[in-house]
Design a protein around this nucleic acid. Structure first.
Length: 825
RNA sequence: GCGGAAGUGGCGGAAUGGCAGACGCGCACGCCUUAGGAGCGUGUGCCCGAAAGGGCGUGGGGGUUCGAGUCCCUCCUUCCGCACCA
């Protein structure tokens, strides 16, 4: 009997696993495969509790599936390119690669201290040229197919940092670093044509029945498919203004039009008018003021009349054309028809500028008047004031009026999407160089495959003065045109790092392959991913990009899959003191400190026990004591019998067992069933842990009664089964106890306990007896007791009888194994 | 505004429509100990009661059912996305 020295046990077993390559895997056609994926971490410096939670979930499932006889792929890698490394370089004068590699080293050590079951030989880092060369290779294939293209587009420009920012880095219209208001600039950029897949991204959701609805819903919103109509409003002397609307049924109520301030027709419309300059200034003010007003939360609607009129093609009326600060250039056509009677935004605008409000949808049994309307009416009703369409209900009017527009050649039913093509250009150093050059003679030319990888130069200057450091490396910029052999300028934009994470899970399968991104046969064996666990914050960007990437690869003939992931399990965040745990809030907990005090097994157990994995969990310092005490209890319980069992010959469980042994086996096998289903089916790990705690309590309770004689075999079974069931959660202490129980082999591939349904069955059950919905007594009946017998016993219960005195039983319900319910009056 | 998730003891949280509060934290009392921030045991939703027992209880209100935390309707609150999306 010895103390539970978790530090010594944990480091020793971690060394043993590493030395034996315990978690290395390969393709094995004889065993069913299980690809268990977790989101690869960004090497920011330290593992945080959120990572730990993510990886504990996958580790328990991986270890359990392995014990269940499956061939499990459970790899890890590093999402190692990205802005923070470059900022560290600017701030501390270290090269981004040095910073990144040293972070990887320390985070790897932290992961190893947690005992996760990774095949480390498959570790990848996306900053490795042997990884990002395949980003470049994919890019070239996509360029050939027209999936990648270059175009001018508005981007976020920070006037103080003198650089372009990713959308995510310009949140709320402010530069994330210096907080200045970002400007929109038109620049030549690289895009991936994700919009070619917008319907596939929606339709293929049918192949994802086990994805959580909230994720699918977020993705649907992100794609933002919206059915409506486009209609052209002619303007004398100009091209017609094309609008998009979902409510073409209200078009006869359109009393003015609005253009986005950035709309390309605005300047032309103003051109020859006498007061053009003043109007132009006003509109310029709207463009500038718009973003600021939005981020301050003041969303006042403002507009400027252009001085021009357009013709409503349905009513032939001339209506004024305005510029409105709430019309977005990025959605629809950047121009709208304004129907103030039936759209609240248009209503507010019309009231402010004294524009006409005309009712064209009349609700049942009411009479709305434009002049007295208090708010826009957007409910159901019938069309009025709309000529031949009067009397139709709105839903009928929409297709009819769209068809009319098409027939007259002024519009058509159409569909718009919120989704935009994926802008992958970044004017930054620490990313994958985009493999093209620009030749004065031949223009843009893709680099030849043989020249890949285009490697980042080591000697770029990180000054923090803005601009892309790559531009300042002449040896990098100077290139040869692959077509004419003349001088060319190399592209200095690098790729968005979301490119790296869109396909990394294929690379794990053949991580060192040098003649292709992955091996088709291994993909065929391992894909699709059976379970993907990660933070809910990636519900859109990463998970949409990954789905797109697989579809694009399919169309390039590289894979045969439509979707990469069968089951997605987004785990909840970790909170502390009611807030999300984060560096900026300063409420983080360092896993290393917890491990030093309690050990990795306790940390793993606590983080899984604290709550259901899909919901936010609340971190509490005192809560961790429970699992820690539990492991001590397990240790004492098993260790005090271990030596004896290790020596004793194995006695089969046979014949009639004493009742204490039968009770123990009942609880034991009920626990086997619960734990197995909680891990494999429900992914409800907190209740699996609770079941194991109950089991330990039960073993303690009957320990003395089963320590000797024929019952002793049941004690041994219980202790060994406990160690096996607990192993996925707390593998170090379990390995140690397993060894002490006399086993030479590691637990990693030990077969999972087999559920014995007969042993788990209760032979007597206690039923509650309800009278008018209230429990008035209990009866113990044999498992197979018939209804008559149960009825007789229930009525015989003295307390029940008391409540029946002078009453009539009008209904009698027996729920086998549960309760008896009677209604009396 | 739209979408999603969630409201259960002092706290984290359990409950295929079937005995609400499993398991753990905390707390109280006791045992053991030279000592304990160790271990063991008992108790612990609220109210009345010495007890037996009774009443009330899963955000509020209504409904379905022999039976509702769970299903339906409605309202309220909190958190998380997206958001002047036409």
């Amino acid at each position: 009997m010895s103390d539970y020295d978790f530090q010594e046990i944990e480091t020793r077993w971690q060394r043993t696993w590493a030395a034996s390559g315990a978690f290395e895997v390969g393709e094995d056609p004889k065993r069913p495969k299980f690809y268990c994926l977790e989101m690869l971490p960004y090497p920011s410096g330290d593992i945080h509790v959120g990572h730990v939670r993510n990886y504990c979930i996958t580790d328990v499932i991986s270890r359990c599936k392995t014990m269940r006889g499956m061939n499990v792929m459970h790899p890890i890698g590093w999402d190692a390119l990205g802005l923070p490394a470059e900022n560290a370089a600017i701030k501390k004068g270290v090269h981004p690669e040095t910073w990144t590699r040293s972070n990887i080293a320390s985070m790897k050590r932290q992961l190893q201290r947690l005992g996760f079951s990774y095949p480390w030989s498959r570790e990848i880092a996306t900053c490795d040229p042997e990884y990002y060369r395949w980003n470049q290779w994919f890019f070239l294939r996509m360029l050939e197919k027209g999936i990648a293209y270059r175009a001018k587009a508005p981007v976020n420009w920070c006037p103080s940092c003198l650089t372009v920012l990713a959308n995510e880095q310009a949140e709320g219209g402010l530069c994330w670093r210096c907080k200045s208001v970002v400007e929109q600039r038109d620049m030549e950029q690289w895009f991936l044509r994700i919009t070619a897949y917008q319907d596939a991204l929606l339709d293929d959701m049918a192949q994802l029945p086990t994805w959580p609805e909230r994720v699918l819903q977020q993705q649907r919103n992100w794609v933002g498919k919206s059915h409506g109509a486009e209609v052209d409003f002619p303007v004398d002397g100009f091209a017609p203004i094309r609008i998009f609307t979902t409510r073409v049924d209200t078009i006869c109520g359109a009393t003015f039009m609005l253009l986005a301030p950035e709309h390309p027709m605005v300047d032309g419309l103003l051109a020859d008018l006498p007061d053009a300059a003043a109007r132009k200034d006003e509109i310029g003010r709207l463009r500038a003021q718009d973003r600021r007003a939005r981020l301050e939360g003041r969303v006042q609607k403002e507009g400027v009349f252009t001085g021009r009129h357009a013709t409503n093609p349905f009513t032939k009326e001339k209506i004024p054309v305005w510029v409105g600060n709430f019309v977005l250039m990025g959605y629809g056509t950047g121009a709208i028809m304004s129907v103030p009677a039936h759209d609240q935004r248009d209503f507010e605008f019309a009231r402010k500028y004294g524009l006409e409000v005309r009712v064209v949808i009349q609700p049942e049994g009411e009479k709305l008047e434009g002049a007295t309307l208090a708010a826009a009416y957007d409910g159901p009703g019938r069309v009025v004031n709309s000529g031949e369409f009067d009397g139709l209900v709105a839903e009928e009017a929409i297709p009819r009026m769209a068809a009319w527009a098409q027939q007259k050649g002024v519009g058509k039913a159409t569909v718009t999407y919120r989704l935009k093509d994926w802008l992958i250009s970044r004017q930054r150093y620490w990313g994958t160089p985009i493999p093209v050059v620009y030749c004065d003679k031949d223009g843009m030319q893709p680099v030849k495959d043989e020249e890949l990888p285009i490697v980042l130069p080591q000697d770029a200057p990180f000054t923090g003065e803005g601009g892309n450091p790559l531009e300042k490396v002449p040896a990098f910029v100077q290139a040869t045109c692959p077509k004419c052999g003349g001088r060319a300028r190399r592209e200095t934009d690098t790729m968005d790092t979301f490119v790296d994470s869109s396909w990394y899970f294929y690379r794990y399968l053949s991580p060192r392959k040098s003649d292709g991104p992955f091996d088709a046969a291994t993909v065929k064996y391992w894909f699709p991913i059976d379970l993907y666990v990660g933070g809910i914050e990636h519900a859109i960007l990463h998970l949409v990009y990954s789905r797109f990437w697989t579809k694009a690869m399919r169309d390039l003939g590289l894979v045969t899959l439509d979707e990469p992931v069968t089951r997605l399990f987004p785990q909840g965040m970790v909170h502390k003191d009611g807030e999300v745990m984060s560096k900026s809030k300063g409420n983080t907990v360092a896993p290393d400190d917890v491990i030093a005090r309690y050990g990795a097994d306790t940390l793993r157990l606590y983080i899984l026990f604290a709550g259901p994995p899909e919901l936010a969990m609340e971190w509490s310092e005192s809560g961790i004591e429970g699992p820690h005490r539990f492991l001590h209890r397990v240790w004492r319980l098993v260790d005090r019998h271990a030596e004896a069992f290790a020596r004793e010959p194995r006695v089969p469980l046979s014949g009639e067992l004493p009742s204490a042994a039968k009770e123990l086996r009942r609880k034991l096998h009920q626990t086997v069933d619960r734990v197995t289903r909680d891990i494999e089916e429900r992914i409800q790990l907190n209740t699996a842990v609770a079941a194991l705690m109950e089991l330990v309590n039960e073993i303690y309770r009957v320990e003395a009664d089963v320590a000797a004689g024929p019952a002793r075999a049941a004690l041994r079974e219980a202790l060994e089964t406990l160690v096996l069931l607990l192993n996925p959660f707390t593998p170090h202490v379990c390995e140690e106890l397993w060894a002490r129980l006399g086993h030479a082999e590691s637990l990693v591939r030990q077969p999972w306990p087999i559920f014995d349904a007969a042993a788990a069955r209760e032979d007597a059950v206690e039923l509650a007896v309800q009278v008018n919905g209230k429990v008035r007594g209990r009866v113990v009946v044999a498992r197979e007791a018939g209804e008559d017998q149960i009825r007789a016993q229930a009525l015989a219960d003295p307390r029940v009888a008391e409540h029946l005195l002078g009453k009539q039983i009008v209904k009698f319900v027996v729920v086998p194994g549960r309760l008896v319910s009677m209604v009396v009056k």
